[in-house]
Every structure is written in C-alpha cells, then in structure tokens.
Design a protein around this nucleic acid. Sequence first.
DNA 1: ATATGAATCGAAACCGGTTTCGAAAAACTG
DNA 2: CAGTTTTTCGAAACCGGTTTCGATTCATAT
Lengths: 337, 337
Amino acid sequence: MITIYDIAKKTGYSPTTVSKVFNNYSDVRARTRQEILQAAEELGYVPNAHARTLTTKKSWTIGVLFVESSGIGIRHPYFSAVIESFKQVAASKGYVLMFISKDVGGRRSGYLENCKLRGVDGVVVILSDYDDPDLQELFDSNIPCVVIDYDTTQAHAVYSDNIEGSYRAVEYLHSLGHRRIAHITGGMNTFAGAKRETGYTTALKRLKLQPQEAYIVAGAYFSIESGYAAMMKLLELEERPTAVFAAGDHLALGAMIAAKEHGLSLPRDMSIIGYDDIDLAQYLTPALTTIRQDSVRMGSRAAEILIQSIDNDTTSLEAIVLPVELVVRESCIRVEQ
Amino acid sequence: MITIYDIAKKTGYSPTTVSKVFNNYSDVRARTRQEILQAAEELGYVPNAHARTLTTKKSWTIGVLFVESSGIGIRHPYFSAVIESFKQVAASKGYVLMFISKDVGGRRSGYLENCKLRGVDGVVVILSDYDDPDLQELFDSNIPCVVIDYDTTQAHAVYSDNIEGSYRAVEYLHSLGHRRIAHITGGMNTFAGAKRETGYTTALKRLKLQPQEAYIVAGAYFSIESGYAAMMKLLELEERPTAVFAAGDHLALGAMIAAKEHGLSLPRDMSIIGYDDIDLAQYLTPALTTIRQDSVRMGSRAAEILIQSIDNDTTSLEAIVLPVELVVRESCIRVEQ
DNA sequence: ATATGAATCGAAACCGGTTTCGAAAAACTG
DNA sequence: CAGTTTTTCGAAACCGGTTTCGATTCATAT
C-alpha cells in the first residue's frame, strides 16, 4: 500500500506537504504540487479513508436502515427504488452507502452502537418499525437522521402526502359512482398505513358516505399475501363493496388475485385502486389505477436534506411532504348508481 | 467519544491491557477483565472501527458492485433478492455491506480505486457489464471477488445452471406439443443472456427442431420494455411461433403484454415461459410458468464463498453452479400438433 | 531461601493520515 | 541593503486503536 510517506520519500518533501497537496492547502507552491501529484500518479497512490476518518471524524459514509423484522428489506420494489435514487445523489456528493444491521457478527448490538462503531456521518431510515427502542436510541443520539415515509419530530422526514393521496383515491372512486368503497390498510403499525387509513375515513366523511366498520380490513406490511387475505374477507360480506382502495400496490395485487379466484371479472365486478405506482402496476391485468408516489424524488430529497444536515450541522428539522398523483389506468370503472 | 484511554484512566490499567480485553488475549487476569468490561459498560464505550482497521488492515466491510450503466441497480427484483440474502449471511459473520460506485464525489475514479480507498475486504459483483475495463482492473487486483451470474476464471463465481434451465424450458414446451418455439434473449452482452441462448439452441438441436433465425430476437438488460418490443417482432412473423421462451421473467412479462395488446388470448393463443421466478411471476395473468433460480441460495452461497476466501486467503477459485427448477403454472398449455 | 517458570501487565512503536504553528526562504519596501 | 511582509515548507502532536517484547509479580519446585 502506497502512503503519503512513500510520496514524501520519492519527492523529497515532507508528508505534511504531501498531505496539503491532497487537501488543497494554499501554502504549497504550484511546482511542488505538480511534482507531488505526479509522484502520486506514478506510484498509484490511493488515500486511506480510515486513516483520514480517524483524524477528521468524518467518514463520508451514510448508514441505511431497513426494517429487518419482516425480512422484506431491500426487496420491496418501492423502497429499493427510493434507495437507488438516494444512492445516486449521495454518490454524487461523495458519500457512500452502508447497510446497518442490528446484530452483526451474531452479537446483539443495536443500530446506534453499529452506527457509532462504523462512524457513519448520517443515517437514512426506511420502512421501519418506528416503535423499535433501538431506533429511538438512534434518534436520541446526535447522529443526523432522515426517515422516509414517516412523520416525526425527532429526525428529518420525507414522506408523501398520504392523506391527500388517499382522499384522491376515494374521491376518484366516488366520482365514478361508487358508494360502497372498502379499504385494505397497510397495517396500523406503519406510518403510511395509518395515514392512509385516516385519509380514507376523512374522505368518506367529506363525501358524506357512511363509514362501515366491515369495509376497513387490515393488511400487514403491504404484502401481497395480506392483500389477498383482506380481499377474501371483503368478498364474504353480504353487502359487498363495489370498489376497494388498497393502501399499497402489493396489497391491491393480492386483492386482484383474490377477486379473480373468486370468479369476479375485473374491473367489471369490482374496481380496485392501489397506492405507490410500482413499476409493475402498469403491467397488471387490468392495469392498476393507483396513486403515484415519486420514489425517485423521495430518495433524492432525502439524500439532499440529510447531507445538508451533515454539512451544516443545522439544528432545525425539516419535514418534506411530496405531492402525489392519481394515475388512471384500467382497474377502476364507472358504476351505475 | 469514549476511547480505550478513558477506560484505562478510569480503571487504572494501561490502554494496552484494555485493548487486550476486547481482543480476548489470554494474558489478562479474570478480575482485571471484569473491571475493564464493567468500566466500558458504564462509560458506554464503543470501539472505533476506523482506528482498528488502520492497524489490522481488516475493515469487516464488503463492497457491492451493481451495474450502473443501465440505471437499474438495486431495483431489479431478482438481484435485490440475492443481495438481501447475501447481506444476511454477511451480517451474521460480522461483515457489513457497502455500495461501491464508480464515480464518487463527481470525480471519475473507478471501482478498484474506491475499493482501496474504503479498504473493503472483498467485493461482490452483480449484474454487471463484464467487459467494463474498470471491472477488469478490480479482478486483476488481489481483492477477493465473487461474481454472481457469471462464469469467469478471474474470480469466484456463483451462477445457476443456465444451459440446463434453458433446456428444461424448451423441452417442456416441446413436451406440450410445441414445435415452433421462439426465444427472446436477455441480450448477448450479459452472461446469463448468452448462456440461455446457447441452452436454447442446443435444446432445439437435441429435440431435432429446425432452428430459425427469425425465432431468436434480442431483448436487452432483461427489461420489460425490450420483452415487449421483441414479442412485437415475433407477432409480425408470417409463421408465428406457438410458444416463446423468454430469458427472464421481465422479458416474459413484456411479451405477455405485447401479445395481449395484439389481441391474443393467453395462454390459448401462445405459450410463454420465463426465467428467474421473481416474486410476481405467480401473480401475473396467466400465472407465469418459469425456470426458478434460487435467489436466496445464490446470495448466501456467494457470501459464504467470499467470506471464506477473505478469511483463509485461499488461492483456488471456486465456481458454484446452482440447480434450477421448472415451475409449472398457467402460461403454457398443450397444443395440437 | 533461592531458583525457576508462569501469569500478568505496560512502554513504545506503529497504522496513515491531518493540522497547528513556527522557521526559513523569497519577495517586497523604502 | 536592511527591514518587513509574504510564501513555502516541515516538526511534532494527534486521532484510537493493536501488537511486540520486556519487566514485574506471583506461585512452584528444589
């Protein structure tokens, strides 16, 4: 491994001066700089990030926290899209992403401990169980955090306008003549799930529809399976809904499968609207009408906020609400009143 | 930040002894160990990975290389599943995953440089452009590498039995009575794409089917769009194939959409078989018959090999071929001869 | 009591950088 | 040309650990 000492030896300058060259200090002569740069080039010098971090206390590393309990992790298409765009702006600003696990090396450790251990400059939290005490511990520390899809006063937050999105979904179904509109939730233990349910109920209120307890059925973790199970329950109802608003595209997909298995023809026999607009939504049969969340924007905004917070060490927490968009495809149709 | 020096001061022992405790040296008395451990606990000591790495030359970090040119990155469902399982065994053995980008901080740098910079202990390469000179440079270095879905003599390799899988797919279609079997490739610049095409042609040969040039149409990057375009070409043929073997589920999906748009009823008018068995395959209409690759196994085996190679510094390169499996669903049906 | 060996501990060097501050050299001033 | 200012450079301390090797202490054997 080539070090600045090797360069110093080769050029005759001191390690100090070599270091200064790479840190753009002004007190080194142009010619000296050239010599050192050239020597570095010839020797194939690559700086040692660990050594640098040791003194500067800055690792140029951002920790990524995925939920681990459900085992979905990076696999959920929506969140992997967010991470991908997060990664791109982080990389452009010189930061690298590192997955932070809870228990590494078989030892029970917790997020904060691992973040401190690896010396990350900041953390992005995605799709997590926000009641997790390990997460609380992290928020209580002074490591800058940004959470995605969650509204908290303990960290920067980037989330889409879940209530508005849900309202749009329900209103759209209403405008198509639907009056018996059910909701498959994402599970109340998730922020987005709770918000979307709130959006659903307020929409019913505003549209003067009578809320029915049986029309709200809980999914879990936005999974296909739970969407399937939820729809099954709805299909057993004597007064079946004519439309279903699912809190996630995967839930909607599960619901569609259940409906088809039950012999329904979609969208004729039931309208279904999702939430997220994952890549596959447009390719389902029928193509899924849904509320689009801008995953790219969400990732990039989150990265920008976090990095800004790291750089400036600002204390004020930001909460960014991203607009959502109704994407009309084929899974919802007008119904006679 | 609490350091071993703080612990040394508090307990009265030297930093050396404190360090020894955490490294399980045998030359420290049980009572001393207890005192130091307790002091560490009380002070909330967390070791500094960077400092440790600086001396030990081991970072407990594994770099992850995704292709960046296509911009798919982590978003491809198959590969994100592989990474997720890779991550889990890596974490269990004490390693952490870090994304390695090519150009970080706007500076053009290359993989090897970034790997050296961050001092990763090993690298896993996924879905990459294997002609990339930057990748070559990495392979030529002495950093342990494992590549996924590629067969090379320059690194450890884990890939599924693409030729056998393709053979099974074609043979299955043949067994259903199909004789005009087309193939949508994954693009010849990918290893899996090339292998599967080879598998297809050898299958034709073995089954004594006449290969037709028009029946092989190139997709690209296993994308839905290119599957769509490829199918469109096939549909224009005067002697239309009765079955299509697509080199990836996304390609198959694109093909299905094209077929439907063209007014075909699936699977009646055309049988389609995919490759990968992504989560969604079973939820498509018709449910996609496909060749399953065991993504979980692939990720975990890759992690095991790589970590073993890091630990033992073995020189012999391993190539692991994982078996594949035909998953029969609804997208292929028997056809009259 | 003395010699011997084992157990326990710490001084010091080192890993590869950064940064402060003072010194020397060069350039400028009158 | 002496005095002053500005450039340019390097010595040394430091970041938080690890590891070697010698010193000290203790127990054991003679």
